[in-house]
């Protein structure tokens, strides 16, 4: 069963003019957000994006950008309390047991 999070929130952006169609984004994305069509990347499933940042990090021509971070309430609340803009995952709780 496919679980989905909030719609229309991702900061993912693709500058198609810089895209070389290498396909790296489609390869690294854990939620199949991208598809390669006619030697260009297409954002096919925008709302599946969890802003992990894998695509942007591995985009050699720099066509992709996203404000990457952890979608973790505890980290965001801790970040707000400490007044830092981009919260860091402080507990490493994410997937402790399931993601090897």
């Amino acid at each position: 069963m496919q679980m989905r999070y909030l719609k229309n929130v991702t900061t993912l952006a693709l500058d198609i003019s810089k895209c070389t169609g290498c396909g790296m984004c489609a390869e690294v994305c854990p939620h199949a957000v991208f598809r390669i069509e006619g030697r260009k990347a297409v954002i096919e499933d925008r709302d599946a994006c969890m802003e992990c940042g894998a695509c942007a990090r591995n985009c050699a021509p720099g066509a992709l950008s996203v404000r990457a971070g952890v979608g973790c309430a505890a980290a965001v609340i801790a970040g707000k309390l400490r007044g830092t803009e981009n919260p860091a995952c402080g507990c490493s709780g994410t997937g402790c047991c399931e993601n090897g």
């Binding site: 999070y5 929130v9 969890m50 952890v70 995952c89 709780g93 997937g95």
Partner: peptide, 9 residues
């Protein structure tokens, strides 16, 4: 924080 699909935004 433990799920595999929630985003920061």
């Amino acid at each position: 924080g433990a799920t595999t699909y929630t985003s920061l935004s």
